[in-house]
Simulated scan of single mutants.
Amino acid sequence: MAQDEPRLDEIRALLRELPGPDEAAAAAAQARQSALALPSGGLGRLGELALWLAAWQNAGPRLERPRVALFAANHGIAERADADMNETARQVQAAVGGRAAINQVAGAWDSDLRVYEMALEQPSADFTAGPALSEADCARALSYGMMAVEQGFDVMGLGAIAQGGDLSAAALCLALFGGEASDWLPEGAPSEAAAWLAAALEANRAALGDPLEVLRCFGGLETAAVVGAILACRLARTPVLLDGVPALAAAAVLHAREPALLDHCQVAQLGNDPAAERLARRLNRRPLLDLGLTDGDGFGAALAIPLLQAAVACHTGMASREG
């Protein structure tokens, strides 16, 4: 590897420097909520979300500048499944052109939407034969995701668009958490998929036990970018909404390193696949929405933003017992 190429060790060093929640801001928000003119806990999960936002925004809570970021790439494993590798480009074009479902929701709630296309014509390698990404490519994708996070946004929704993303997510979970391939494969996966995952584990056995190496060997460019964005949001004290299984599988890489690394993250939605529910339970996360959505293309995150806005409005606008 060339001297100036990025290395995963730089990310490992960063993981030791990430800030925690602002305890003073959390205490102030709790005091405000305790004084609201309603029964204790009357806001239910809305109250919990307001406190979570305050703890990770250093003040507030506030939700005036939301952003949703989508990362798009393709996986070599998708070619084994005879997937249409042009579908990712079509989804990207629809979102960029304002014609996707997410555009309608994001526009209705004034959410900033960004789509990051990552070498769609160059899928990651087929992980059944070895690592999906080189160390340099993985580190570059992590850095790319970090650079997509700008200061000044109150919440960041993260999603992914990728052919083969569901198979990659299953491989990541199997490598990180163990179990059987059937525990993590989505419904409707190809009949050969369990054998593919078994071959992938055998080909990349040296990576097991190191979450960032697992990311490199079983993830893709968009997976690494989502991990990078989660880390950058933590540094910027920007709360995160994860949308769908691919984004949550990316988050699982950090959870495997240290569960507290996801304390600034909520799950917008999972879809209705049992593997998705199993992953959420493993990460101790309960989705905000259950609408039967199937994709993790940011649509669920955009839908969850008005829920957070409602939490903030109740927390800041309601009368207190003192008047």
Results as ranks from 00 to 15, higher is better:
A95T: 15
L142M: 08
A78M: 09
G20T: 00
L208V: 13
Q57G: 07
A301V: 02
A252M: 11
P211D: 05
L270S: 03
G130W: 12
L254Q: 07
N204M: 06
G220A: 06
M147N: 13
E48P: 00
P186G: 12
G20Y: 10
C314Q: 13
G179H: 10
Q163Y: 00
F177H: 11
A29C: 15
R65D: 12
N74D: 07
G44L: 10
A301C: 11
A129K: 13
L303D: 01
L158I: 13
A193L: 08
L262D: 07
R7P: 01
M1R: 14
A200W: 08
L288Q: 05
G188A: 08
E222R: 03
G20F: 11
G300D: 07
Q93G: 08
M156V: 11
N204T: 04
A169L: 09
D273F: 12
V149D: 06
E117Y: 00
E213I: 00
E64P: 00
S182Y: 01
D273G: 10
P287V: 02
I102D: 02
F299R: 01
L308Q: 09
P66M: 09
D137F: 00
A252E: 06
N204G: 06
A247H: 02
F127R: 02
A73R: 00
G178E: 08
G165F: 04
L288R: 04
G130T: 09
S191F: 01
E187L: 13
L172W: 08
R16M: 06
P131M: 02
L174T: 11
A72K: 06
L113P: 09
G20L: 10
A229F: 05
A139T: 08
E187V: 13
L289W: 06
R234C: 02
S320C: 13
V240T: 02
L291G: 11
M318W: 09
A189L: 08
A83R: 14
L262G: 06
T88H: 04
C173Y: 05
G178T: 08
L231M: 13
L241A: 06
R140Y: 01
P39S: 07
E213V: 00
I102C: 07
R114Y: 00
N86W: 05
A236E: 14
L113N: 06
G76Q: 03
A260K: 12
D273A: 12
L167S: 04
L176H: 05
G152S: 10
P306M: 05
A236P: 00
